[in-house]
Each structure stands twice: as C-alpha cells, then as structure tokens.
C-alpha cells in the first residue's frame, strides 16, 4: 500500500455474525467472512470494474466505502475520510447507485426526487440547474421528469437513479450492479453516460457488475473478488490470460454431422443434433475459426458467447488452490 490513492483499503475485513435457527429455541452462531484482508487503491479519475460471482463481497465492499457498514478490521479511507466515522461529511462527496434499490420517491414524479436532492445536499441553485440540465440531456430524461417513478421501466428508473446520485457533483461514484436486469439499449445508454462522466468530468467510478461487457467497454482496470478475497487486479486482457478463459462458438449446421474438425486449441465440447459448441481461447479472434468452418461445412447460423465470469473466476480459483 503506497498511500495517496483517492480510495485506500488496507487489509480491510468484514465479518458478519449470523445466527441460524437450528431447532426449537436453539440457535447456531456462525461467522461469515464477507470481505477478507482486502487491499487496493484507486486513484482520482480512475474507472475501475469490480467483479465477482454472487456473494463474493462486492456489495459489502461498497457499503463500507459509503460508511453504512463498519469494517471489522483494517484501514479504509475515501478522500482521506474514514467513511463509517464521518458518514454524513463523506456523503456530500460521494454518489451511490444500488442497482436493485432505488433512492427515488416511488409515488412522485421524477423531478420531485431531484428537488429533494437539491435541498438535501444544499446544492447551490445555479449548480443544481446546470447539473440537472446536463444529466437530463445525456441520460435522455426529458420526457420522464413528470412521470411518477413507479411508472418507469427498470432502465428508465436506473437512469433516473444515476442522475440523482450526481446532482451534488460527487468526486466518486459507486455503482453496485447498475446494468442488472436492463435491456440492451438501456445498458448501452448507461455505459455511454458513465464513459462521458469519467472523461469529461473526471469523476472517479467504481463499478460492480457480473456482466463482463460492462467492464470490457468501460474499464481499463478490473478487480476480481471471490470469497471476499482479491483474486486479480489489472487490465481485462490479463484477466482472460490469468483465468485461461474461453469463449464459445455456437454453430448451426444444415444437418447432423460428426464433430467439426477444428484447429487446436479450439475444440468441440458439445454436439446436439445439427448444433455444435466449440470452445476457443478468449484472447484469440473468432474470425479465422469462423472462416474455416464456413468454408468446409454447410453453415446455417452461428453466434459467439462471451466467457462466463463465474467460470473464469472458478478456474482462477482452482489455479490458485493448486499452485
């Protein structure tokens, strides 16, 4: 840990005491180590992806970074502030979006929630107006401002939530699964906006997701967490190498045929009637493989599946365990 980062974690831990009922008036106490000796540092203006399977400890980390959870151990600073001790002071400098929860006022028009943010964060009037104008334009909220939040689609609501988190000019934005459940167009809009936010305003962004495409399109740096431990911290390409991850080419042929004779390391992993699945390294282009199959086989249709993040991490985890 070198110090000087905007977000600094030094061997941070979070242990939950969980009580489970095991019988009549019998409780079993168990400790869940949600975050385990986590250290990383994020510089001002960085855009970092934070990924990992369900239950890895992503949300717990974000909650500690906002101050709504106190770490059980280690040292944590955001903008030099200890979040859990000075939650309210920090609140003026950070923005948070939880994908599965909303901070918006359910029964009221979207604009009412923004007016409330205006008062809550004591945003100077001119600042509020220009920030709102900018968010409305970039997130295409124009037609939605007078619509009650409960009538918004998930994607619209998410855009509304992101705007709400930014009106007070936070220096850092945490997003916990901002694209979960969104359709392709909404996802694209959210990504586009985040990219602009980061490059134009220089806002530091920490983004949790389990959609690798979010990371691919946005983040030069990715951190992988599993079982509360940091498994990887570096560029996305490196992650594919570290996890030896593979993409899948799904090929529909005209008729049922024996497994396609593909050039190694690509290989057929599954055959089901006229459909065949081929695995090949994620770092390698699909083009030559596709060209070859198209030339030699009666091809009807094909699609490429991105590596499943859970699989990548599972493989990384297995590698560490055997190493």
């Amino acid at each position: 840990m070198t110090g000087g980062g905007f977000i600094e974690l030094d061997r941070v831990e979070k242990v939950f005491d969980v009580r489970k009922k095991t019988g009549f008036l019998r409780w079993e106490r168990r400790q869940v180590r949600a975050v385990d000796s986590l250290s990383f540092s994020v510089a001002r203006g960085e855009m970092v992806g934070y990924i990992g399977p369900n239950g890895a400890g992503k949300s717990t980390t974000i909650k500690m970074l906002t101050g709504i959870l106190t770490p059980s151990g280690g040292r944590l600073r955001v903008a030099g502030i200890d979040p859990s001790r000075e939650r309210t002071r920090l609140a003026h400098r950070i923005g948070v979006v939880f994908g599965q929860r909303t901070t918006l006022w359910w029964d009221l028009p979207l604009i009412d929630s923004y007016k409330l943010m205006h008062r809550m964060y004591r945003i100077p009037d001119a600042r509020y107006r220009s920030n709102l104008e900018q968010c409305v334009e970039l997130l295409q909220l124009d037609a939605l401002l007078d619509v009650p939040v409960r009538q918004l689609s998930l994607g619209q609501r998410m855009r509304g939530d992101i705007a709400a988190a930014l009106l007070h000019d936070p220096e850092v934005l945490y997003l916990d699964e901002p694209t979960i459940g969104l359709d392709v167009i909404s996802k694209a809009r959210v990504r586009e906006f985040l990219r602009e936010l980061n490059t134009e305003r220089g806002t530091t962004v920490l983004l949790t997701t389990h959609d690798l495409q979010d990371i691919e399109q946005l983040c030069s740096r990715v951190m992988v967490i599993d079982h509360g431990r940091l498994m990887y911290d570096g560029p996305l390409a490196g992650l594919h190498e570290a996890g030896e991850s593979e993409r899948t080419l799904v090929v529909d042929l005209e008729r049922e045929l024996p497994p396609i004779d593909a050039p190694a390391p690509a290989r057929v992993v599954r055959v089901e009637g006229p459909r065949q699945w081929l695995a090949f390294p994620a770092a390698q282009s699909a083009a030559p493989l596709v060209a070859r199959i198209a030339a030699e086989y009666p091809l009807v249709d094909l699609s490429v599946r991105e590596p499943d993040i859970e699989a990548v991490i599972a493989r990384m985890y297995a590698d560490r365990a055997t190493a």
């Binding site: 906002t66 101050g67 709504i68 959870l69 939650r87 309210t88 609140a91 948070v96 939880f98 901070t103």
Partner: peptide, 13 residues
C-alpha cells in the same frame, strides 16, 4: 425488512 433502510442512512439527512 428489505435492507433498503441502509440507503436512508448514507444520505445527509
């Protein structure tokens, strides 16, 4: 019950 109350806590209110 749903834990949404945590959101209320990080707001400066």
């Amino acid at each position: 019950r749903t834990g949404d109350v945590a959101i209320d806590l990080y707001r400066p209110a």
